[in-house]
Amino acid sequence: MNPDTRDPAGAGDEMSSAAVPAGLPAAAAIHRRVLASGVALDLLVVPTDRGAGSSDASMTDMTGLLRDWVSATAGAALAVVVPLYDCLVAWAPGRAAIVGPPEHLASLETAIIAFAAQDASLRDAERRGTAILDAIDADVAASTEPESWSREQQRGLTSRYHEAVTIGCRLSLLSSAIHAPPIHPPTLVTQLGERLRDRTRLVERHELATERAALAERVSEASRQRALELSVARQQIGLEWVIVVLLVVQTALLVVDMLASRGAT
């Protein structure tokens, strides 16, 4: 397999526990690829003869098998099947299947790995963004009563703000890959990547995740700012009251001193 697909950190290949579905050619094999982010991908590789186009009956029969196999972990709703010219690719989070002539398999795997990394990164950003938004309601409500916050709550709001900024940065780094225009003349890698991005609506999901991250950042920043301003204002009010108390006590001391000295005379 293409050494470029190995994880730079050396995690690379692992043995997969998944079994090759029945009905596939004997040369079919499953490899486990570990992406740089640590996400694992079970890759089912099925070599076929060149000229057996993706519209052939054999390929058509395999479509259902492959869809079922990739759906096993992530569910059928997330599975996509992309028929290319003499290749067939099925994908779902965590699993992928590539069917094609041997000379195409390396390119297909490269494209799958790259897409899987993009998808995993996007899913992670989606999940983390959703978690932040779930907590946003409480943050907004609590920001008007900052003195009632525990240290844990304060740390939580700060961490959510940092998280939102981090997610936004990751999404912007991902943007160049996701929003890259179709390349022409295309290669097999670019064709598959474009088809997968289109089928999984990666662009729309990225836009939504970016909006959510921006919303989370704005709201958490506003909450922090509001809480800070309220705290500062209340500290200022407290200091002002301290001054008032000191002045009152000083006045009382002066009055006592004055009255006592008048009484003495």
Partner: peptide, 16 residues
């Protein structure tokens, strides 16, 4: 007043 200021006032009353 904030509670802290009230306690401060109480302490001041005791001290003076």
């Amino acid at each position: 007043m904030p509670d802290g200021v009230v306690l401060f006032a109480a302490a001041l009353v005791i001290v003076v």
